[in-house]
Write a protein that binds this DNA or RNA. Structure first.
Lengths: 222, 222
DNA sequence: CCAGAGCTATTTGTATACATTATCCCCTCA
DNA sequence: TGAGGGGATAATGTATACAAATAGCTCTGG
């Protein structure tokens, strides 16, 4: 991570995820280069990567803009993610090891700790959640599947609204994870796939509900 | 396509697809730059794109090599492709227009013309096939889905062995397309999805069978 | 007042030189 | 003789200068 292009990638990505670079804003290589303290070369590199992650889009005329995620876009991304994560869960169940299962259980324990606190620790929840899904993907053992999902899991809108999830939504997510663990323990791929599909789609609906509440908030912030 | 980086991308990609750059070979920026008549900058650009298409892989130490597709890799790619193309077919059926349907029919007519010839015109078949699936993807109307499938459809091994498909396999592919057209005409998403799934998986098995026959041939050519 | 052409300013594309890093080979020393 | 270190080598990472292209503006002519 000491490479300038990696630093630029992380920096720009976090600017987009945090909303510092708002959706639709033009991204200019030289301005970002100065902001990141590097030259245009690594910034170009970073922008190409962000473009393949669909966080940045380029017009036919070679200018780049922060991707504008409509509600339909988010629905689309969640739907595709549900399909691919379900496939990952199915494969993972077939090849699950005891070691990996222990790591998955530990991740869900971290989630439990985070959401049990008087004030839910959203950061801890997100971190545990990331680990939970990452281990499943790892056990699924497909470089290609991991690469495809990679472009879907980092969604600016989701990150920005994760703090608005209700406590019940967090609890429900945790208990769905428990059910997934049970399916993995039984090496039941069909069950794991079904739970994962509904798990991701439910997360979308939680997002969509929260979004209605936060839309005016987001507008006010601009 | 007049951009130097686009030319470099196409040139290197075709070197890989044709086998001129064999699997596992190290790719060196400066050598390719000289070969393409451009500087290293656009070559770097092209290599990053090829890398995100999984045609080129980089070791942890930043050196790049032509991706080596094992039989398992190919099976994996086909399986994921069957899942995503099936989803595309389902969506396309729901939103099919008469104009798009006509284009799909025309593409399959081109395929019919190509395979009816005394000596099957494999190039014409591949072109018609590409158009057939491209229109479906277009009607499905998801930038994201198109982007995900983009990394799966250009497979060096498949391109190199397409010429070994049997005439029966080509006929069968054409008639499966006809069945897909019927499903689209009825706007039956479930049917279209099921046909597409088996269509892609069957293509994989045709490839796997042909692969056994052509393995020694490929070795002899090297 | 509108339309269109041309100019200017801005931004990206490309080339090249230099810096950094990793590999490989050789040489030394135990 | 084998292992470990150090230097040469080769490749990539980065910076910068310059070229090309595009958008937006202004100015002119109808």
């Amino acid at each position: 991570m000491s490479r300038a292009s990696d630093r630029a990638f992380e920096a720009i990505r976090s600017m987009i995820l945090s909303g510092e670079l708002p959706a639709g804003a033009q991204v200019v290589e030289e301005a970002l280069a100065e902001k990141c303290g590097v030259s245009r070369t690594p910034v170009r590199d970073a922008l190409r990567r962000l473009e393949s992650d669909l966080l940045v889009v380029r017009t036919d005329t070679q200018r780049s803009f922060v991707a504008d995620w409509s509600l339909d876009d988010v629905a689309d991304a969640f739907e595709l993610r549900s399909i691919l994560e379900a496939e990952a869960a199915r494969r993972a169940a077939d090849q699950m090891t005891d070691g990996a299962l222990a790591r998955i259980r530990a991740a869900n324990r971290q989630i439990a700790d985070a959401i049990m606190k008087p004030v839910p620790d959203v950061g801890g929840f997100l971190e545990g959640n990331r680990e939970f899904h990452a281990v499943i993907l790892e056990v699924a053992g497909s470089r290609r599947l991991a690469s495809l999902l990679g472009t879907l899991i980092e969604q600016p809108v989701v990150w920005r609204t994760a703090h608005h999830y209700s406590r019940e939504a967090l609890y429900r997510s945790h208990s769905e994870h428990d059910e997934l663990i049970a399916a993995f323990a039984r090496r039941d791929g069909g069950w794991a796939k079904a739970i994962m599909t509904s798990h991701i789609l439910r997360a979308y609906h939680a997002y969509a509900e929260a979004h209605g509440l936060t839309a005016e908030f987001q507008q006010a912030a601009e």
